[in-house]
């Protein structure tokens, strides 16, 4: 080897197609800490790390044979003491004296290697973070959907509870608490301007006897059917409720005394004419219409008095509070 190449500022090694080291310059020998006779005639694997041996077989060898050159390939050399030296490798396939030589030139890239490692690590980290971010966003989206579902469930549940809380279990009418609230609401919405509003209180005549004669099951059925009948008789804006044991109430918004009496009479007649099976059933009704200065409790108490009067008057009749003396 001529002196210029031997001491050139780059490593030089020449290989045959069996990957045997034919020649190697002093620069590279110095780098690897080997003597010429230790490497000449040896397989290139001797100065390659394990990963590089594999990489050499997978990439370097096919490329130098198929493309006859290799540009800027990164691999790692191994010194005599086992130290790893990252290098950049250029190679070309040349014919000399009828034989092929795979001539390689290489430069250590220690510092550049560190830079590139750091860059790769940063790039990997960024990729990972982006992926994690994507995953987290997906998870957040899923959580949000879940939350929405739960919220809807909760709303439905609340609605169900509300219905349960204001419904009378036996008749399906509103219960007394709800009636009370509706009455308050109706009076408050008057807002100084008096709208006619009437209240009917109804009581099944001799209900105790029905219970005693036919049993509670029949009594309950009568209450249920009475509920149904009231439901049928009430208008959209009316509120029918079970007031107590066999007592029912009907709030009639925008209804004056004469209309309230007409409705009450219609209901009374309906009950009287209805087919109740074994025995006839009638109801007594007390009606009251809101007067200036009335509260919900005074209205109820007036209707109650009227009902009492109907009972005393012989039952199966309608009495309006304003007709009481």
């Amino acid at each position: 080897m001529d002196e210029q190449l031997d001491f050139a500022p780059c490593g030089y090694v020449s290989l045959n197609d069996e990957s045997t080291i034919l020649d190697i310059n002093k620069t590279l020998l110095g780098l690897l800490d080997y003597k010429l006779q230790e490497l000449q005639g040896q397989h290139i694997n001797l100065i390659l790390t394990h990963a590089s041996q594999t990489f050499y077989q997978l990439y370097f060898f096919p490329m130098i044979r198929l493309q006859e050159k290799v540009d800027a390939m990164y691999i790692a050399l191994k010194t005599k003491s086992g130290q790893e030296i990252p290098i950049l490798l250029n190679a070309s396939r040349n014919k000399r004296g009828g034989k092929f030589f795979n001539d390689c030139a290489c430069f250590p890239m220690k510092e550049r290697y560190e830079y590139e490692q750091a860059l790769l690590a940063a790039k990997k980290e960024t990729d990972q973070r982006n992926q994690m971010k994507k995953k987290q966003i997906e998870e957040l989206g899923m959580l949000r959907n879940e939350l929405e579902c739960k919220q809807n469930e909760l709303l439905e549940l609340n609605e169900k509870l509300r219905t349960l809380a204001e419904t009378d279990g036996l008749t399906g009418l509103k219960n007394r608490r709800c009636l009370q609230e509706s009455l308050t609401l109706n009076l408050n919405s008057q807002a100084g301007q008096l709208q006619p509003i009437s209240l009917l209180l109804m009581d099944i005549d001799y209900f105790k006897e029905i219970n005693d004669t036919y049993g509670h099951m029949t009594g309950d059925r009568v209450l249920q059917e009475m509920g149904q009948l009231l439901e049928e008789e009430s208008r959209k804006e009316d509120i029918a409720a079970r007031y107590g044991g066999e007592e029912f109430a009907l709030i009639l918004p925008n209804t004056d005394k004469s209309d309230a009496l007409k409705i009450a009479e219609r209901i009374r007649l309906h009950v009287e004419k209805a087919n109740w099976g074994k025995s006839a059933i009638t109801i007594s009704i007390g009606a009251a219409t809101l007067q200036p200065g009335d509260t919900e409790s005074s209205l109820q108490s007036k209707a109650d008095n009227a009902l009492y009067a109907s009972k005393n008057g012989g039952r199966n009749q309608v009495t309006h509070a304003s007709d009481l003396t």
Binding site: T49, H50, A51, S52, T54, F55, Y74, A76, E116, L120
Partner: peptide, 24 residues
């Protein structure tokens, strides 16, 4: 013939050569 670290080293070398940079 390989430990896990050897194969990871090989893939690392592939990355240094092009896998890692190709996207970029």
């Amino acid at each position: 013939g390989f430990e896990k670290e050897d194969l990871e080293g090989l893939i690392g070398m592939m990355e240094m050569n092009y896998i890692g940079w190709a996207n970029y």
